[in-house]
Simulated scan of single mutants.
Amino acid sequence: MTQTRRAFLATGAAGLVTLAAPAIAASDAVQRNVSALQNIDWRDHFDALGRGIIVADTGARAVHYWGGDGETYRLYPSSVPVSPELTKLGYTEVVRKVDGPTWTPTPSMRERDPSLPKVVPAGPGNPLGTHALYLSWQYYRIHGTHDTRKIGRPSSDGCIGLYNEHIARLFALVEVGTQVRLI
């Protein structure tokens, strides 16, 4: 289910408590993330909503979406890169949307692991999950994952991963041209 900001904050922050997990006693780290999520606003990052805004907060492991209508807001837990240097931070935009994406390892991935396949077709073995939002930065995506253990953890080579059910919902809301900021 898509959670509202209030419901998400009530159950836990940014995947530290997964959507399916029962509530747990809040640790200091969870409390800090909840406080950070409560204070984020699109106006802190952009001058106008335009077609919509996505703020991917790598520190809080959360993806915020505000619709261009000024009424729609969604918050999703996300995965983040294994290493901070693997993800660019800054401004970009959604340039393409793909339902059932194929995955092609980047040249640097293939250099690190030559055994990687050249292409992985859409399906359960595809690291991009069921949907992908392609960003203007080459090789960067906001995408789903079939491996739900990755959400809320460092697990990617630079992309922002969401549960497949969440990326499907976000995919339906997002238009090409949606502004994106990774912080």
Results as ranks from 00 to 15, higher is better:
37 L>R: 06
172 A>M: 00
124 P>Y: 02
55 V>N: 13
97 K>M: 06
160 I>T: 15
174 V>Y: 02
82 V>Q: 08
62 A>C: 15
166 H>A: 08
89 L>W: 11
102 T>V: 07
109 M>R: 15
145 T>Y: 02
142 I>A: 12
64 H>K: 09
68 G>M: 11
93 E>I: 08
31 Q>I: 12
64 H>T: 06
39 N>S: 14
41 D>M: 08
29 A>T: 14
174 V>W: 03
79 S>L: 11
150 K>L: 14
100 G>C: 02
112 R>D: 13
76 Y>K: 06
57 D>K: 08
128 L>P: 13
127 P>V: 01
121 P>I: 01
167 I>P: 09
175 E>D: 15
102 T>K: 12
65 Y>R: 08
53 I>C: 13
124 P>T: 05
113 D>I: 12
166 H>V: 00
83 S>N: 03
91 Y>L: 12
94 V>H: 11
112 R>H: 08
141 R>D: 00
181 R>F: 11
68 G>D: 07
79 S>T: 10
94 V>Q: 11
125 G>M: 04
163 Y>G: 00
12 G>L: 04
113 D>W: 13
71 E>Q: 15
162 L>Q: 09
150 K>V: 02
70 G>L: 08
41 D>I: 02
128 L>H: 05
181 R>G: 06
172 A>G: 14
84 P>S: 04
122 A>Y: 06
153 R>D: 01
143 H>Y: 06
40 I>K: 07
108 S>Y: 09
17 V>L: 03
50 G>W: 02
120 V>D: 04
118 K>T: 07
44 D>I: 09
67 G>C: 09
36 A>C: 05
180 V>H: 11
96 R>S: 09
134 Y>E: 10
58 T>V: 14
51 R>V: 07
176 V>N: 04
81 P>H: 09
112 R>E: 15
70 G>D: 08
81 P>M: 10
91 Y>R: 15
105 P>H: 03
173 L>N: 12
86 L>Q: 13
173 L>S: 15
150 K>Q: 13
50 G>D: 07
143 H>K: 10
22 P>V: 10
6 R>I: 12
137 W>R: 10
107 P>I: 09
111 E>I: 11
121 P>T: 01
169 R>G: 14
138 Q>H: 12
63 V>W: 08
94 V>K: 14
74 R>S: 05
9 L>A: 11
132 A>K: 09
115 S>R: 14
128 L>E: 00
12 G>M: 04
129 G>A: 02
47 D>K: 12
175 E>Y: 02
24 I>P: 02
126 N>M: 01
80 V>G: 06
165 E>G: 01
41 D>E: 13
154 P>H: 03
100 G>D: 01
5 R>I: 14
150 K>N: 06
5 R>N: 08
74 R>N: 05
142 I>P: 04
126 N>K: 01
23 A>Q: 15
152 G>T: 07
159 C>T: 05
1 M>C: 04
176 V>L: 03
157 D>Q: 13
24 I>E: 11
23 A>H: 15
77 P>E: 07
28 D>W: 06
127 P>D: 00
3 Q>G: 03
44 D>E: 12
144 G>A: 03
114 P>S: 07
123 G>Y: 01
6 R>E: 15
164 N>D: 06
77 P>S: 08
157 D>N: 12
139 Y>M: 08
150 K>E: 05
174 V>F: 08
78 S>T: 15
65 Y>L: 09
99 D>Q: 05
96 R>T: 02
98 V>A: 06
32 R>S: 07
120 V>H: 06
101 P>C: 03
10 A>N: 11
26 A>W: 04
105 P>E: 04
84 P>R: 12
